[in-house]
Design a binder for these strands. Sequence first.
DNA 1: GTGGCTGCAAAATGTTTGCACGGAT
DNA 2: ATCCGTGCAAACATTTTGCAGCCAC
Lengths: 131, 131
Amino acid sequence: MEKRNTIQKRLVMEAVTRLASHPTADEVYAEVVRTHPSVSKATVYRNLGSLSEDGRLRHIRMPNGADRFDHCLTEHRHIACIQCGSVRDVPVTEPDTLDEDVAHGTGYVEVSHDIVFYGVCPGCAAFRAPR
Amino acid sequence: MEKRNTIQKRLVMEAVTRLASHPTADEVYAEVVRTHPSVSKATVYRNLGSLSEDGRLRHIRMPNGADRFDHCLTEHRHIACIQCGSVRDVPVTEPDTLDEDVAHGTGYVEVSHDIVFYGVCPGCAAFRAPR
DNA sequence: GTGGCTGCAAAATGTTTGCACGGAT
DNA sequence: ATCCGTGCAAACATTTTGCAGCCAC
């Protein structure tokens, strides 16, 4: 019942923090294995889940590719470049009554939402349409 | 270059329409196979993709489980019950300047977004907390 | 000491792809 | 005659799980 603080868990946490920019589980695994080759991918997945559950990481579900994990716990959104796949932070801009409105409109309770933005990042846009 | 209108494509289209409520690719496949056992799952996937591309179906990317397909083309959102997994429609409530705002804030271009709501549907809520 | 955590491999899930063939144009 | 769309199976990508042993508590 008690959650343990294992070396592996710390390694996963550190990897996500070090990679900073929303790594996928696979990227976290690669980072951990670099210094600790014996750690298995299942353990990385399990610890990512555990840490997210504990609120120490944020689990970002990407509607397309692999899910990502964020060490930054402040409320924010993400935008993925449809060209290069990079992901960066975006401040929250949708009204905070959104869930409430939907709850009232539908009769659902405990309403939350996932929102992910897509677009072409400045770098890719420049490359696509140079001068 | 020319897209053909095959029996399989029509079957897929009809299945999505008949199932009405946001079937997954697998559910569409099951529905098609019931009457036409020789149709392969790959064909269903390919036709779902083709029809979505043509705007005849809407491809709903679910951040969690399998993607779903919607025969209803009018702009709307979806809410999934975290208890029973059912999905129903929700009118758009977020401001239509959302993408614009993010574009201005980030410098990204061609900004769009996916948004999916989660909650407990009235039925499941009643079951969970009767009386 | 013991039960959660790990490593390994295998399974599960969801989707895509290579290939040869058959049918629509 | 083309060549697109199909069926089949296998590949692929991501994540989960079963199990025996280990190690943090």
